Simulated assay, not measured.
Amino acid sequence: MKYINNLAVKMSISAAVTLIFANMLNLQFSTVAAVIAILSIQDTRRKALIVGKNRVAACILAIILSFLIYKIIGQNAITFAIFLLIFIPLTSKLNISEGMVPAVVLSTHLLIANPINLYWIINETLLMIIGIGIASIANLFMPSLQHKFNVDKEYIEDSYKVILSKMAKSLVTYTVDIDEEIIMNALEKRINESCERAYKIVNNSFFKSESYYTDYMNMRKNQFDIIKKLRTHFEKFYMSFEQTYMISSFTQKVANQIEEANDCEELLDELEILKNDFKKMSLPKTREEFENRAQLLQFLNDMEDLLNMKRSFILNYRKYNNQK
């Protein structure tokens, strides 16, 4: 069953089955139906539905337009150019450009048909129906990516925990682990791959408007951008204060609670208390202290953005579930 999910295998099987059906019906240019089937194989069900619909519309338009032009004006290179001048802009205007190439091929059959009659109209229509129809059936067989997505999600959350824990340590040691950059690069690559998987999962569903997978990955991707921003602050930290240790402890707490289910409400409340406590502390005595304290506050503000992003995702997801 896993092999049917392979695009190359689906294209091969679809082309062979299409060719068999077309030959059984004694259709002219039967190989064209196989080519249409190959072109109609897509990597998601929703995309396949859209492309298939557009190809049917474009092919029907091409057959009708070709019949009228070639029947009235004649069958030659000039009339074929006239057909293209009319047909190509129409496909663009009607947003059915995906079907332009196979539709033009069908038109060339009518261009050389002698004479153009109902037989040829039926022939071209059946080539279209069989090619797109067989491909549509094949497109129903898509791999389940949810398990891989769940593995990605666990990897991303674990990586965030590791990175934030390292930040908590670096705040008070002024050192950055050698492997942190390696972790960040691997994480960024995994996030991009998982975003593609999330898109495919959502677009493999006909009946659900569920966008949880893409919403979750967008949230994690935006958090990753904030984490990169948090890392830049360490270039300017070179003094420790009471606030430094408090923020370090809070950062470690965030790392420990990075999992998906946490709505961050308690963390955000604690962060607000932390900010209020900072306001009550003595003011910095030197310019260097002021700059470092300001950098710490900016670090905390960015951490707040990180948490708010997660909380917004959780609240929106809960609201969606309550409306279902």
Rank of each mutant, 00 (worst) to 15 (best):
N204E: 09
R293K: 08
E124N: 13
N321I: 15
M303A: 11
R220Y: 03
V172H: 07
Y199S: 04
S144E: 14
A16I: 15
K166F: 05
E265H: 11
K324D: 00
N301A: 12
E288Y: 05
V17K: 04
R293M: 14
I112M: 12
N262A: 09
Y238Q: 13
D158R: 03
K228S: 07
E196K: 15
S209D: 02
N6G: 09
L127M: 04
K275Q: 07
V17L: 15
N95G: 04
R197D: 02
L7H: 08
Y317K: 15
L65R: 00
L271F: 01
D277K: 11
T79L: 10
G52L: 02
L118K: 12
N321Y: 10
N5P: 02
N316Q: 10
L306H: 03
K153A: 12
M100K: 07
N95F: 14
Q223K: 05
E98N: 14
S136N: 12
N316F: 08
A58V: 09
F278M: 08
N192T: 06
V56D: 01
E242I: 02
V105Y: 06
I116T: 00
I122H: 08
Y317L: 14
I183Y: 01
R293H: 13
K229S: 09
K200M: 12
N117Q: 09
F80K: 03
D302W: 11
L274Q: 10
V151G: 01
N322I: 15
G133F: 05
F313W: 00
A37W: 01
T173A: 09
Q323V: 05
K2Y: 14
K324G: 14
F299P: 00
G74S: 08
P115T: 10
M246F: 01
